[in-house]
Amino acid sequence: MRGVTDEPRHTTPPRIDDIAALAEQVRAALPEPFRTHARAVAIHVEDFATEDVLTEMGIDNAFELTGLYDGIPLTERSVMDQPDRPDAIWLFRRPILDEWVERGEVTLAEMVTNVLIHEFAHHFGWSDDDIAAIDQWWE
């Protein structure tokens, strides 16, 4: 993606702030009109998803969840909706770092870009099947 740069080689694991900075670069590099809509979404970075989130999603291993969109997709909104909080994307640092190391051939910036774009796609109303049809990241 245009404008997203990778960080120098790390001698220690990238911190939450490092992942957040990469995510902000990704958001800033989105083409219009996506960038405008993406600005309304909060981006949070934590080490792992909470136990409540993992339980709700039926996930036993916290390392299996790299990101999560929490909100109402744009395609499902109504003028009658009164949101109780802003839409948010959660990036989970430790699972992202694990997958980055496992893959070996991708940069951290590419890894964060993939996870964040996947979650923004949910914000724009795309299903997992829609995303998989154009982005076969797992291959």
Rank of each mutant, 00 (worst) to 15 (best):
R2W: 10
R2L: 10
T5L: 13
T5F: 13
D6S: 01
R9V: 12
H10G: 08
T11Y: 14
T12H: 15
T12V: 15
P13S: 13
P14R: 09
R15S: 15
I16M: 08
D17N: 14
D17W: 14
D18K: 04
D18P: 02
I19W: 06
I19D: 00
A20W: 12
A20G: 10
A21D: 13
A21T: 13
L22P: 05
L22C: 08
E24H: 11
E24G: 10
Q25R: 11
V26W: 01
R27L: 00
A28V: 04
A28W: 06
A28P: 10
A28D: 11
A28Q: 12
A29G: 08
A29K: 01
L30I: 03
L30R: 01
P31K: 09
E32K: 08
R35F: 02
T36Y: 10
T36C: 07
H37F: 13
H37T: 11
H37M: 10
A38D: 05
V41K: 05
V41D: 02
A42Y: 13
I43D: 00
H44D: 13
D47F: 15
D47K: 15
F48D: 09
T50L: 06
E51H: 09
E51N: 01
E51S: 05
V53S: 14
L54I: 05
L54F: 07
L54N: 08
T55Y: 09
T55P: 07
E56D: 14
M57V: 12
M57G: 13
G58M: 02
I59T: 04
D60Q: 12
D60V: 09
A62L: 05
A62R: 08
F63N: 12
E64P: 06
L65Y: 08
L65V: 05
Y69G: 07
G71P: 10
G71Y: 00
P73H: 00
T75I: 04
E76V: 07
E76G: 12
R77S: 04
S78Q: 10
S78E: 09
V79F: 15
V79E: 15
M80Q: 12
M80I: 12
M80H: 14
Q82F: 13
P83E: 01
D84R: 14
P86C: 11
D87S: 03
D87I: 03
D87M: 02
A88M: 10
I89D: 04
R93T: 02
R93E: 00
R93Y: 04
R94P: 02
R94S: 08
P95D: 10
P95M: 14
P95Q: 12
I96T: 04
L97E: 03
L97G: 03
D98M: 15
D98E: 12
W100G: 04
E102M: 11
E102K: 14
R103Q: 07
G104R: 04
G104T: 05
L108Q: 04
L108T: 03
L108D: 04
A109H: 01
A109C: 01
T113H: 11
L116V: 03
I117K: 09
H118E: 00
E119I: 02
F120G: 05
F120E: 01
A121N: 03
H122Q: 03
H122V: 04
H123F: 03
F124I: 02
F124C: 06
G125L: 04
W126G: 06
D128S: 03
D128A: 00
D129T: 01
D130M: 04
I131C: 06
I131L: 03
A132N: 07
A132T: 08
A133I: 00
A133T: 01
A133S: 03
A133F: 06
Q136G: 14
E139G: 11
E139Q: 14
